[in-house]
Design a protein around this nucleic acid. Structure first.
Ligand SMILES: [Mn+2]
Ligand SMILES: [Mn+2]
Ligand SMILES: [Zn+2]
Ligand SMILES: [Zn+2]
Lengths: 165, 165
DNA sequence: CCCCTAATTGACACTCGTTCTCATTTATGA
DNA sequence: TCATAAATGAGAACGAGTGTCAATTAGGGG
C-alpha cells in the first residue's frame, strides 16, 4: 500500500477525486471587489486566478492553479500566479496549508477557521473545527507569556476506507 | 522590528543564543547502540552526526549539522548528513520540525512527545506538552474514523521580551 | 475619452534545500 | 581474510519558489 503524499508532491492525481473538498462558487463581481479591497488593480489574470480558486477544489497548489488558468488563458505566466497567491496570503485573503515538505496548498480563507485531518494513503483532506483545542492553545501561549498570532495544526492518519480496503 | 524567521532561513544566527534549547549530552557508546538498533552499519560519519545532534542545541538544520561535523571531520559530504537524517527520521529516531517553508530542523526524538511554540520575532522555541490537546486530537480523528498516526502542532506568536522592547 | 504613469505582466534566469547518481571505499559476518 | 552489500563523497540534478527586466496595461486626472 503506497503512500500518496510523496506522489502528490510529484503532481500525480489524487486517488479519490469524488472526495475532494469543493466550495460553492462565488457569484462574479465578488472577485473585483476582493481585488479592490486589497488595493490592487483588477486584471484578467487576477480574475481568472480567483475564479479558479473559487470554483475548483479547495487546497490547490500554485502549479494546479497555473494549469487551470493556463487552459483558458494560455499566455499567463506562472510568476503571476505565485505573486498573486503570495499577496493574497499576506492579506489573509487566502490561507496557505503546508503538509511536511510538500508544495504549499492554498484555499480562499473561509469565514470560519478550521484545521485539517489528512489521510496519508489516499490524500483525502477532512476539515474540522475544535474550539476546545483552540482555547487550549491560547492557554499554552498565555502560560509562556506569548501573544499568539497563528498556529499550524495538521493531523495525519489512515482513513476508514483505506484501512479496510 | 524585523521578523527573524526569514533570516534564520538564510542562515543568520538567532538573536538570543542563551535561550536556545540544549539537551544533556549522551554518554558515548549509546550512539553505536542507536545505529545498530536501526539495522545500519556503524561508521565514523554517523557517530559524528549523532554526537553533534546530542551535544549541541536542539532543532538544528541539516546545514548546521553538516557544518558542525565538517569542522572536526572535513571530508564528510553533505549527502551523508541528509541521508542519515532522513533514515533516522523514518525510524523516528529523530523528529523533523518544519516551520512554514523554512529548512527542516531536527532533534533527537525525546522520550516524551512535545510540540513547539515559536517567537516570530526572535526565533526562540519553547517546548510544551499538552495531554489535553493530544486527547482532543484523538477524539477528532475518531469522529472521522481515522486512525491517527502523527500530527503537527506549531504555535506562533510574539514572546514577552520581544513585545516589551 | 485620452494620457500618463505606476502597477502589473511574462519570460526566463536564478536561488536554495534536498535528492539522485555513480564510481570508490568500507564495515561486517562468514 | 575475504566477499559482498552497504555506505560514502563529489557533484549533477531536481523542484518549488523568487528576482529581474523590458514590455504592457489599468485607471485616475485632465
Ligand atoms: Mn481547508
Ligand atoms: Mn523540540
Ligand atoms: Zn484514505
Ligand atoms: Zn521573541
Amino acid at each position: 500500500m503506497e503512500h500518496i503524499l510523496p506522489n502528490l508532491a510529484k503532481g500525480r492525481a489524487p486517488l479519490e477525486p469524488e472526495k475532494l473538498i469543493r466550495r460553492e462558487p462565488l457569484e462574479p463581481g465578488t472577485f473585483k471587489r476582493m481585488i479592490r479591497k486589497m488595493g490592487l488593480k483588477v486584471t484578467q489574470q487576477r480574475l481568472a486566478i480567483l475564479e479558479s480558486l473559487s470554483a475548483g477544489r479547495a487546497h490547490v497548489t500554485a502549479q494546479e492553479v497555473f494549469e487551470t488558468v493556463n487552459a483558458r488563458y494560455p499566455e499567463i505566466g506562472f510568476a503571476t500566479v505565485y505573486r498573486f497567491l503570495r499577496k493574497m496570503a499576506e492579506q489573509k485573503m487566502v490561507t496557505e496549508v503546508r503538509m511536511g515538505g510538500l508544495p504549499a496548498r492554498y484555499e480562499l480563507t473561509p469565514r470560519r477557521h478550521h484545521d485539517h485531518l489528512t489521510c496519508k494513503l489516499c490524500g483525502q483532506i477532512v476539515e474540522f473545527e475544535s474550539p476546545q483545542i483552540e482555547a487550549l492553545q491560547e492557554q499554552v501561549a498565555k502560560e509562556h507569556n506569548f501573544r499568539l498570532t497563528h498556529h499550524v495544526l495538521e493531523l495525519y492518519g489512515d482513513c476508514a476506507r483505506c484501512r479496510t480496503g
